[in-house]
Amino acid sequence: METTTAPTETVGESKTLVRGNALEKTYGSRLPLGRSTPVLTGADIEVRAGEIVGIVGENGSGKSTLMKILVGVLDHDVGTVERTGTVGWCPQEPLLYDRLTVSETFRLFGAGYGMSREEIDAAKRRLADELDFERYLDYRVDQLSGGNRQKVNLSIALMHDPDVLMLDEPYTGFDWETYLRFWDMAQDLANDGTAVVMISHLIEERSRLDRVFEVRDGLVHDVTDEETESGLRSDPEGEHE
């Protein structure tokens, strides 16, 4: 297993910010005779600055596993990961501390990013305004609705203006206006050079993605110009309040 943060080369006009080579991952069982589950068997992926990349695939195909490996929160068994610049990660399940207020959550994670108090406050105000949760800043996370919790989850990934943004179904629970605002934000970030990688299920989003990768049979296939085998859902029911 190898992970580096060395700069990678430029392809055309865009610099490659994340590259995973021949990634393999098998989930073992805790029990001696339990079953091991191979998820990735040699996946390759490359993400460049300023593009919005979609990762699709069936349930259990390994999309989230791939993203966690690229982010660095999960070990891979074989292969290499190269990352350049800062990373923002929005996990599928909000990984937040329930008994902290939204403001305290910004402070905790902002300190981790190395931001000053002023920078944290500015980012908090900007994101709360853009995603419309200013009135909940003093609420505890466990007092928020699912949608507002997800807004905070996304904001933590965005607050330090990362070079690479990794989003695992970031819009779950968003209302329609927030969903559209989110896409505007993602497009603005990409225009400013941020690489946005997103696990996605919705067919409406396909036109917004520069490239689409499908995780299938443990490998990553570039399906930008073709229909994916699993298909993207056309019915966003349940995704938006």
Partner: peptide, 15 residues
Amino acid sequence: REARDTDGRLAVVGY
């Protein structure tokens, strides 16, 4: 119990 999942995210943000 409460930290084992979420503290991993602290590592991602730089802790």
